[in-house]
Simulated assay, not measured.
Amino acid sequence: MHGSSGSAVPAVAVEKLVKTFKTVEAVKGIDLVVHPGETFGFLGPNGAGKSTTIKILCTLADATSGSARVAGFDVATERDAVRRSIGLVFQEPTLDGYLTAEQNLKFHGELYGVDKSSAAQRRKDVLEMVGLWDRKDDLVQTFSGGMRRRLEIARGLLHSPKVLFLDEPTIGLDPQTRASIWQYLGELHKREEITVFVTTHYMDEAENCDRIAIIDQGRIVALDTPEALKAGVGKDRVSIATADDVAAITALKDKFGLEAKMVEGLVTFSVAEGAAFVPQLFEKLGVAIKSVAVARPTLDDVFLNFTGTSLRDAEQKGGFNPMAARFRGR
């Protein structure tokens, strides 16, 4: 899963992209370049602008301003060329349950003009890639959620796109099935030499990407490899439960010069060498500590560092997602 930045035409190039819904600015002027062959993650809470951006890139929504090119084609003026160059797996299931797995792919192939002489072999290839060739004659309505998602990925790959867009591909699936979907994606990526652009709000999934952009409230707040982003935090996260959280936050600032905040119900702060710091905490804080946990930097710490909140807390606060609201209303 490695892209190169060479001189090749970017798989995705976005400049100053803005999308406004009446009074809500869902995407606030983002810039982005995704290299050919890269697995690129778009990480952020619901309502951050992920799905809106992906729909603009896939020609399913118009930008208010700014520009975007996919596989070298302009999403506003070269829509047909963009659509021939991309595969798309939506959050919402779009398979026909009354057709078999192979019939779903055959219908899709005809829509996309897949060469009839090679169509049958291509259907076999993609179904084998996702482990469903032995179920090709079964009705999709008999499939589990994970099997349907794998079939949607196979369908997205059928016409050999240059870029595969996956919008929250594992949403609603159990952790084991989520892990297996990513295993399939890794194997597919090696075989197909394709650029994969995936939106997710699962931290662990973003670890599978070559690079990730963290988006919050319509803006990209960080963009790099997962390793570089975590290294940039540079400190451990310490979370404590105390008898008086307000007093603890004040004491951490007054006695140690540390800025702490409440994250997921715990007093949380960052400090170098967290484990070595804990004994000082018990000795000098002056507030009873019920429990303490020290963790190495994670992508959630990166999110916390750039946005001032954890991804889970941002999810719970929620945000208006105009695109989702529009599609639910249909």
Results as ranks from 00 to 15, higher is better:
Ala295Asn: 10
Thr53Asp: 05
Ile30Arg: 01
Ala68Tyr: 00
His35Leu: 02
Thr250Gly: 07
Thr20Asp: 06
Pro169Lys: 11
Gly109Thr: 06
Ala228Ile: 03
Val27Lys: 04
Gly72Lys: 03
Thr94Phe: 07
Pro175Glu: 01
Thr23Trp: 08
Glu25Lys: 13
Ser4Trp: 00
Thr39Asp: 00
Gly172Glu: 12
Leu99Asp: 09
Asp174Met: 02
Ala11Thr: 04
Leu223Ile: 11
Ala276Met: 07
Glu25Asp: 03
Gly218Asn: 03
Ile289Trp: 10
Ala71Phe: 01
Val34Cys: 01
Val130Thr: 04
Asp313Leu: 01
Tyr112Phe: 13
Asp134Glu: 12
Gly87Ile: 01
Ser5Ala: 12
Gly218Cys: 02
Arg149Cys: 07
Asp138Gln: 15
Val14Gly: 04
Leu132Ile: 05
Arg69Lys: 14
His189Ile: 12
Gly329Glu: 12
Gly6Glu: 07
Ala295Glu: 10
Ser239Asn: 03
Phe269Val: 09
Leu151Asp: 00
Phe73Asn: 01
Ala272Lys: 13
Leu158Cys: 14
Glu192Arg: 11
Gly265Gln: 08
Val163Gly: 01
Leu158Trp: 05
Leu111Ile: 10
Ala243Pro: 02
Gly274Ser: 06
Ser65Arg: 12
Arg330Thr: 10
Gln176Thr: 15
Gly6His: 10
Thr309Asn: 08
Arg211Ser: 08
Cys58Ser: 15
Ile54Trp: 04
Asp74Gly: 06
Lys253Gln: 09
Lys19Pro: 12
Gly44Glu: 04
Arg150Thr: 13
Leu285Thr: 06
Lys235Cys: 14
Asp244Asn: 15
Val287Cys: 12
Arg178Asn: 04
Ala179Pro: 00
Gly265Asn: 06
Val18Cys: 00
Lys253Thr: 08
Ser7Thr: 07
His2Trp: 06
Leu185Ala: 02
Phe143Val: 09
His159Gln: 10
Gly156Phe: 03
Met129Gln: 10
Phe42Leu: 15
Asp62Thr: 14
Ala101Met: 06
Arg330Ser: 11
Val70Lys: 01
Gly286Ser: 11
Lys50Val: 14
Asp244Ser: 12
Phe303Ala: 14
Asn305Ala: 14
Ala63Arg: 03
Phe327Gln: 09
Ser160Arg: 03
